[in-house]
Amino acid sequence: MNFALPLLAVSALGYLAAGAGIQRSIYLKSQKSFPKWRKALWASFGLHTTALVVYSSISGTLPVNSLNETFAPLAWFIMLLYLLLGERWSVEVTGAVAAPAAFAMTGFSVFALWQGQPSTQAGPGVVIHVLANVLGFASFFLASFCAILYFVQAKLLKKKQLDGIFRALPPLGTLDNVSYRLVWAGFPALVVGIASGLFIKGGQWSWGTQEIVVVATSIFYTAYLHARVAGWQGKRLNSILLVASVFAIASFLLPGSHQ
């Protein structure tokens, strides 16, 4: 057994506890404990990082050799982006989803690594392909959640329901800015992911379901970035982001050529 797995499991539990704490704070309409939960998430993230380093040094490979394994680095990227964003913008509330998601992904990955056969070492092309896609998907995951929060906050402002969750949610401008920056971070990763995938397949492009979904994903994110750079904001722009996110999820989960 790889000694990293118990560490990974503890970090997953840390994410769960902190996520539950953030959700409870939102329910109690009190944001005072957010900094405490942020610290807990940083601690779990530190443990997660250690676990990934230990795993790689023992097994000689990153956990990127199957879709199930990649959930561990995916959760790591999600938490890294969430924690870095939180240092600049008050978007702690996104931790209510990001942390439980990181728990589920890390937990699933631990289960897969526990059950699975020792992995064959992936080549550098595969590692780049997986890490780029994982970083891209982590960025898009958080961006899509910010877009959902944008709609919720906009609705509350329209309906003048200024109590409860309204007070915990970040301003519309902040959500818009954070989504934009996340997509900017994720888009180059998506391009690298597609290019490295093409390289792995020997430069042969086939129009399978996954390839079609990947192209649609890039088109929607390109459209989003183009519109945002041109000065568009608001609900319609966030709608494009949400549609793009649906395609991104599909492209990540579709088996395609990853089997």
Binding site: F166, P171, L172
Partner: peptide
């Protein structure tokens, strides 16, 4: 306060 909730900064 509301302006801040809409625009952030």
């Amino acid at each position: 306060d509301l302006a801040t909730k809409i625009f952030g900064e």
